[in-house]
Design a protein around this nucleic acid. Structure first.
Lengths: 190, 190
DNA sequence: ACCTGAACACCGTTCAAGT
DNA sequence: ACCTGAACACCGTTCAAGT
């Protein structure tokens, strides 16, 4: 049985998905959750705090998918994780922008979800380094490089700064594979 | 003598810089430009169109700095350009987020500025490839990889997803150099 | 403990009217 | 050709009052 708080987060996530950030108003969130427009203030400090809960839910979902996954090798696990992130960002641009947007509120829930997600990817990178599939060096830093490519490629693609009229249209997933190829020596298969 | 249109763009850019996106209201923009709050509608289709002009101005400024620069080698020119971008994004986060944010309006001015900036970087990459300082392959794609890392590193740093409590704190500029090192074989000097 | 409903301050946008 | 000023619809947030 979902609590009113859960209902509010779900309603906000649905509105964000359906109509973008402009569609997320506390009036509509309240209406979808079956409460008034001031009810959210009994559960969240304000609108941004509610949005932080939406972002945290997204990060937790991604982490759950990662834990569910079975890969043939650590290198493939890293690649699958990055490509899953890219697919999610392109499919849900508003959630992607929200999650890594400009927060002016401190949300332990969001910070925890982000830290858990990042730590899990670092573990995969460490295993891939042990296999020689990724270069040696500070695992945090190698992870940051991989994450930066995935994030930047999605940001450029979503804002239209990646595609070009003529040839050479590279999708975000291609750029992730390019980097992995340059880092690992062996280009990723298929 | 700046036109009213230029005054409006300058006022919006100043407000964005000083107080973030929430501080850019047409009322305040108009007041700073010495006109009423409805005057901007004689020069722009709406608020977003005005913001597109602000973003385009930023891209043109970056391009002007690039043209002014003298580098020891094509590889150094590419590196300097990426590091200049990173420095600008971290120093002016609101402008960075605006420029590569979710546009729902078609602005030829912004599209032109972005295309010009991208093409210039591709030229630098081509020259660096000819020197063997960057791997061969579609220059558009190599440029996209470099740009993605710079953008992603800035996005992660600004949203606090890059730093970590303990060790291994990598700044965006470090990740750019890491990538160039992996791509070029020779790590960038100093 | 949780919610309502009215109220407040603020915003983007429109438009008839001015010069 | 460019601008004004009032108006409209909408929003986040607060708060006294209810159960």
């Amino acid at each position: 049985m979902p609590s009113t708080r859960d209902d509010l987060v779900a309603a906000a996530a649905d509105l964000l998905e359906e109509g973008g950030p402009g569609a997320v108003t506390l009036r509509e969130v309240g209406a979808r959750a079956g409460v008034s427009r001031s009810a959210p203030y009994r559960h969240f400090a304000g609108k941004e705090d509610l949005l932080a809960a939406v972002a945290a839910r997204g990060l937790r979902d991604r982490h759950a998918a990662r834990m569910r996954r079975r890969a043939a090798s650590p290198a493939e696990a890293v690649r699958a994780d990055l490509l899953y992130f890219v697919r999610g960002a392109l499919a849900h641009p508003a959630l992607f922008r929200l999650t890594f947007g400009p927060w002016t509120v401190e949300s332990p829930e969001l910070a925890d979800a982000a830290a858990t997600s990042r730590a899990a990817l670092v573990d995969l990178v460490i295993a891939a380094q042990a296999d020689g599939a990724l270069p040696a060096g500070d695992p945090d830093r190698v992870t940051a490089l991989l994450t930066a490519v995935a994030h930047g490629a999605c940001q450029l693609a979503l804002s239209g700064h990646l595609s070009r009229a003529g040839k050479g249209h590279a999708a975000p997933a291609d750029l992730v594979d390019d980097l992995l190829g340059h880092l690992g020596g062996q280009p990723a298969d298929r």
